[in-house]
Design a protein around this nucleic acid. Structure first.
Lengths: 227, 227
DNA sequence: TCTCAATCAAGAGCACCGCTCACAATTTAG
DNA sequence: CTAAATTGTGAGCGGTGCTCTTGATTGAGA
């Protein structure tokens, strides 16, 4: 099984990619709720049942789209942050947070897919959780760099709040005091809280200039986290 | 039209209520995506087309559920905050934020309906925006009380970020410096950012004790906002 | 080279969905 | 008492996800 290089396998891979491309187009156009396997089959000019040779269910297709969205966002944020001079911690933080918001505004349906209401029976497979970690890893990397510049006592702060696993996977994190990490996660939460409210319309009527509002957020969090 | 007190009108009102009750039950059980007019009609033992005499479309039913959820949450938070001694500003803040989280955890599907991905073609009618304002109004009320205790210069801070309308609708807000109001909205955003991440599973792997994490959030925001 | 198993495409079909419509029954208003 | 408005019904349309049978194609081993 899976000889890996037959002409058959290549064709399969290509059709799978075509389905995924069309699915992404439909997602961007109509959102996750408007995505239908039948209509994908129609535009690809194949029978509706043929789709199931490539994706066992609609949920499986959705999972692929979720993975794709996480990686798209992750790559975007990584690139934006990497483009900034390493010593400019503040600039790196601003770049990462701004890139997150910009991506969300450019791909609102993809954003909603991963940070909005979860799809009913969905359980994240292992492959998605590493993709989902890319943005927080970027942010935490800036925190670590900041802690290296301003060394502090790592043992301070409350304990038991953080998952022990997170300190294992990112070992340099041990250098950062737990209270600082928690504040980093708080900023991460607030980032997506603000973006979600902006995208989902919960700011209309209170915040008029969402741009300035967001700028204030990312500058203040930079002040609080990187000193 | 709408004589308001005929036996016919009463029956209509009651059937409407029955539909709404069953819809809420389905929402709580299966979430918004699993809500179907036909299955409601089935359990109410009426023909599926009869439902449309009471709700013109699925979206209209959903709108009613959204309104209901906003009011349920609003009433819960108002009651919790009102139960605290008026002079205990910190206690009022803690009560309001904790009640919000507790409600969300008790009614995750209703929470997702109003603060998750918006339903595709939905545009909030006027009736919902006042219901949606109940929680922020409670929070802002605490801010106003705090500003009354510690009077400050209202003219300080940046301008143009806030919607002018919000200062008109809540006139006492003019006593609160704009920077303080913005920080209040920030806390409001972070509140729902944290709750959403907790409910939607984005904290697994990083925050182990969500309870303690949330407590830290609401205590710190109380410190920052009420002094 | 032939054979046989695996793969794939297609179509019919099932159960469900939102929604519309014509029609009959009933109630209300004038 | 009659006419209009309201309500319930069942059939039906087009759509969905998904399954199954059937038939064609392909590729690897004897």
């Amino acid at each position: 099984m899976a000889t890996g290089r037959g002409a058959r396998a290549i064709a399969r891979q290509q059709i799978t990619a075509e389905i995924l491309t069309e699915a992404k187009a439909q997602l961007a156009r109509d959102g996750a709720s408007g995505l239908s396997l039948r209509s994908i089959a129609r535009t690809l000019e194949m029978s509706s049942s043929a789709i199931y040779r490539y994706f066992a269910s609609r949920d499986e297709l959705l999972t692929a789209l979720i993975l794709d969205a996480y990686n798209d966002l992750g790559a975007t944020v990584e690139a934006a942050e990497a483009a900034v001079e390493r010593s400019d911690l503040r600039g790196r933080w601003l770049a990462a947070t701004r890139a997150t918001r910009a991506w969300a505004r450019a791909e609102p349906h993809a954003y909603a897919l991963i940070y909005g209401t979860p799809v009913p029976n969905y359980v994240a497979p292992q492959s998605t959780i590493s993709a989902a970690s890319r943005v927080p890893i970027v942010l935490v990397g800036i925190l670590i760099a900041a802690a290296r510049e301003h060394p502090m006592d790592p043992s301070s702060g409350p304990t038991g709040v953080l998952d022990p696993g997170v300190l294992d996977t990112i070992d340099q994190l041990a250098q950062v005091p737990e209270a600082k990490i928690i504040h980093g996660i708080r900023a991460w939460n607030e980032l997506f809280g603000i973006i979600s409210f902006e995208l989902f319309g919960h700011l209309v009527g209170s915040v008029a200039d969402t741009e300035a509002y967001f700028e204030q957020f990312c500058h203040e969090t930079a002040d609080r986290l990187l000193t």
